[in-house]
Design a protein around this nucleic acid. Structure first.
Lengths: 198, 198
DNA sequence: TTGACTACCTGAGGCATCCTCAGGTTAACT
DNA sequence: AGTTAACCTGAGGATGCCTCAGGTAGTCAA
């Protein structure tokens, strides 16, 4: 799937530009994975076989590069929230989605922080995606609440706080440990209501 | 209370040295509070009225400076865990301590990350303090578990994961929001057992 | 009080990274 | 083939990290 740029595919312009765009993005993904969101952009440019100015031409900001590097994964997460599942399996759908969210939020070190900031700061490259995730999460949470399987007083903002916390723990888990899933399981046991309540 | 240096008061040496040490520490606290743990050390030195080399003389590493800047607060937290409270109010003691821990962990932006890394990485300036906190937390958790008020399968490591997550959320809460306390409350409701179980 | 001794301080400087911009290059279209 | 402008390059100013050679001054003993 050729990624053509932010929001609207309006940059099928010069072939060399597209090629460099793709190369930079691939290099950035590798660098972020290895060194976190504060990886050296000059290093990224070097690995992409491109001068530093070219990188800044395509991605005027580090945040823009992060946004582009995570767009596919996060939009996948948004799509996953779109299949509405009221009724019987609303809780299962929600919990499965939460697991996916935590995984995506901790794609590389530093991402959760960027997303958390983008969530409430419009004018950030990732804000649109965050807003979409917020809507999707609200949908799933509402369904599970209507089904009587999740405590009714839980806000969507609070849900994302929990997801962010879990993702951060996963990012920063000590060597050998993997705090994410267990964290989420513990949290969930405090949110879920017994099945009989319905 | 004059802070005389790491671990053992073995540096009541020259008066100017002590004076600069204190000035740097005060400036660092202010800078960390304002800009997070990655504040400019050259700026800190400037605000302390000292050359950059002097800062590095007293604190060879940014981590050492962070350790010194947080030592008082964290040792207070450790002391708070030392008063053993078995029996009736074990749960209350634990929850109160957890609230204090979250507050101290989020003294400034970036601290939780440093502490989380120090927890399992000996050779870090903050490791000793982290180990002490780990022991204290284990004590309080054990008491609450023996009193039958907290689920028995919760590890001390997991407790600290939850505390770290809450602290991170508090650090990164959106403007106006204060996710920490609510986060902790939600988590606790998943950990606590009904009183009747005793 | 004076004379070491040495802990202490200074700040230039090498290195990394960020980000900009003036000028050269070339893909694409006529 | 000629024209246009999108694209690329890389030098360079700014900031921050950290080190080190050389100068300064607190302290103590005589």
């Amino acid at each position: 799937m050729a990624d053509t740029g932010p929001y609207i595919a309006q940059r099928p312009k010069r072939a060399d530009g597209q090629r460099n765009y793709d190369a930079i993005l691939a290099a950035a993904r590798r660098a972020f994975e290895a060194d976190g969101s504060d990886a050296s952009l000059e290093d990224v440019a070097g690995r992409a076989g491109v001068a530093i100015g070219t990188l800044y031409r395509h991605f005027p900001t580090r945040a823009a590069l992060v946004e582009a590097a995570t767009r596919d994964g996060l939009s996948e997460l948004v799509a996953l929230a779109e299949r509405p599942a009221d009724g019987e399996d609303a809780l299962e759908t929600l919990t499965e989605w939460m697991g996916q969210a935590v995984r995506h939020f901790s794609t590389f070190r530093g991402l959760v922080g960027i997303l958390a900031r983008s969530m409430y700061d419009e004018g950030t490259p990732s804000h649109a995606m965050c807003a979409a995730m917020h809507r999707g999460g609200a949908e799933l949470l509402g369904a599970a609440q209507r089904a009587g399987r999740v405590r009714a007083d839980l806000t969507t903002d609070e849900l994302f706080d929990l997801l962010s916390g879990a993702a951060w723990v996963r990012e920063n888990a000590g060597p050998g440990r993997d705090g994410g899933p267990r964290f989420l399981a513990l949290v969930l046991e405090g949110l879920v209501l017994p099945d009989g309540a319905r």
